[in-house]
Design a protein around this nucleic acid. Structure first.
Lengths: 214, 214
DNA sequence: TTAATAGCTTGATTCACATCAATAAAATAT
DNA sequence: ATATTTTATTGATGTGAATCAAGCTATTAA
């Protein structure tokens, strides 16, 4: 595990002692697809660090539909704010695919690591990343309509082939699969995109961009 | 101005030298009501610190309606993320009432202050506050319907008397004044609230709470 | 004091998207 | 290979909130 920890970008500035201590206060856990990591309101005893796989952070709206706040894919601190502020988790978290998560005893982590500016800088970076994601979520959901959301989503993913079901894509964009499907249908009819073995190809980038470029 | 800076909670840990340098690289400006502080896309040369008054951070949606992302009232860093990341401002900012803002030359600020963990901690605190506000904005706008938003808003403000027009209240909640008015009408008809010289009084806390307590 | 302007309320209409429903297609299990 | 479950598509209907419109009230200006 020591080697694994050393490779994690977040810990790039840690020396051997740091890593050793980190290892001592952590457990590595593997969760299978669709496992709950924590519920909204749970006590934030552990700092969760996603090492492999993907997670979603979500709440429920008043119709009991999930509202996805963010999706985490790369190595990242999960809900570090709750730890920092010693508050319960503000949202739910579950795995989308099989995932490896490092659970760190936060109190010990805090007293050892959070005195030093190099570690603080790590937190600043992570908080910054979180803010950018949240701002993106807000822009996406509060300033764009569904058609624009889908257009932007396709545009930003392309040409990365990352296979996701339409259902997941729709939920990432906080809309129903029906709405997503109808919009894709429209884009295909307008010859903006085509679908080849589950991946979108953009046929008319300019027109597609017009849908979300304000 | 030196005394003013010393009183600012954010700078509580600064010593005389720090304050002196801060003063050297800053200008204090007073903006009147409804002045633009910066536009989305502007270069983030200055760190803005709100000292007095109130600001709104907002974008436009596709119908050219304002979407208010946050409202700042207390002493706070404004859009510090843009500075930290050396990126253009992601949103617009304007004053709601007359406001005093400290404009700090960010490059100088960074090279002097951001090496030290005590200053970093200040940033961490500010980023944390920003995240909490953003999460609140998201919860409010993505998980609650308009009725619940209004109920929550009234509940959380009460009994603080802070005079705001219905128009401003509506825009804080990202809805039209018409919708706001209709919901207030309904609450009055249900004897949940009453209005006395521009302030709401809650008559039935339990029922009001039911509207937003999931 | 009156005029002008901005904010508030209420009704009618429109719109974007969700919901409900039915069928088809694909993925997974047996 | 067949059965079963999950996902995808398409149409019909419902709904919350925006928009449009008109009259009203309060504030500010002349």
């Amino acid at each position: 595990m020591k080697d694994l920890l050393k490779q994690i970008p977040i810990f790039e500035n840690f020396n051997d002692d740091d890593i050793a201590y980190l290892q001592k206060i952590s457990t590595l856990k593997t969760f299978e697809k669709n496992s709950i990591i924590f519920f909204k309101g749970d006590d934030s005893r552990y700092l969760h660090i996603l090492l492999q796989g993907s997670l979603k952070i979500y709440k429920y709206n008043q119709n009991n539909n999930e509202v996805m706040l963010k999706m985490l894919n790369t190595t990242s601190l999960v809900a570090e704010l709750a730890n920092l502020e010693h508050m319960p988790y503000p949202s739910n978290c579950s795995t989308l695919g099989e995932s490896k998560i490092l659970l760190v005893d936060y109190d010990k982590f805090e007293s050892y690591f959070l005195k030093d500016s190099k570690f603080l800088l790590m937190f600043v970076k992570s908080l910054t990343k979180t803010i950018l994601m949240l701002e993106k979520t807000i822009s996406l959901n509060l300033t764009l309509n569904s058609t624009s959301k889908v257009a932007k989503h396709i545009y930003e993913l392309f040409p990365n082939t990352c296979h996701m079901s339409h259902k997941i894509r729709a939920s990432t964009l906080n809309m129903t699969p029906e709405t997503y499907s109808r919009i894709i249908r429209k884009f295909k009819d307008e010859n903006l995109i085509k679908e080849e073995n589950g991946e979108f190809k953009i046929l008319d980038e300019k027109k597609l961009k017009k849908y979300f470029d304000i």
